[in-house]
């Protein structure tokens, strides 16, 4: 299940709706509150965003045989401490759940068309993509289960 929403992400409600599998891994990304940011604005590309998130969730579901994959991403204006993104992977065993959860957050950072604009007081600036994000996504390019 994927969702793009302007409303606050209700993590407890999302957790309640997940199937009772042996392993559940979740990740919550939040607006950093420690570097002077007073507001974060998330812009996205309607249509293309949903397509990209569906592709990330579908790839994870197939690669790690997940019972369920969830990606919920916030758009619009939000305050420090608020959740930007929620990712969950439900699987039979922990390694699949943990790897799938990491894969989904790494991949959505490079594959989904979102753009962050930070405001500090009166100054607003667009966030630059980090090389580390590309490297984190690229580490999943090789699937050890498919090596010869």
């Amino acid at each position: 299940m994927i969702r793009v929403t302007e409303r606050p992400i209700d993590v407890a409600a999302l957790l309640d709706a997940l199937p009772e599998t042996g392993a559940l891994a979740t990740f919550v990304g939040r607006v950093r509150a420690d570097d002077g940011v007073t507001e974060l604005m998330l812009e996205h590309y309607p249509g293309a965003t949903e397509r990209a998130l569906e592709a990330v969730a579908a790839t994870a579901t197939e690669r790690w045989e997940l019972a369920n994959a969830i990606i919920v991403h916030r758009i619009g204006a939000m305050a420090p401490g608020e959740a930007i993104v929620f990712v969950a992977a439900a699987a039979a065993h922990r390694q699949a759940a943990l790897d799938a959860c990491a894969f989904m957050i790494d991949r959505l950072k490079t594959d989904a068309p979102f753009w962050k604009r930070e405001t500090r007081g009166r100054e607003a600036r667009w966030v630059e993509q980090r090389g580390g994000d590309r490297a984190a996504a690229a580490r999943w390019d090789h699937d050890p289960d498919e090596s010869s």
């Binding site: 998330l42 993104v85 957050i105 959505l108 989904a112 979102f114 753009w115 966030v127 993509q129």
Partner: peptide, 10 residues
Amino acid sequence: VAIFPPVTGG
């Protein structure tokens, strides 16, 4: 056709 900066979500 869409033109945009490198993405920064998540």
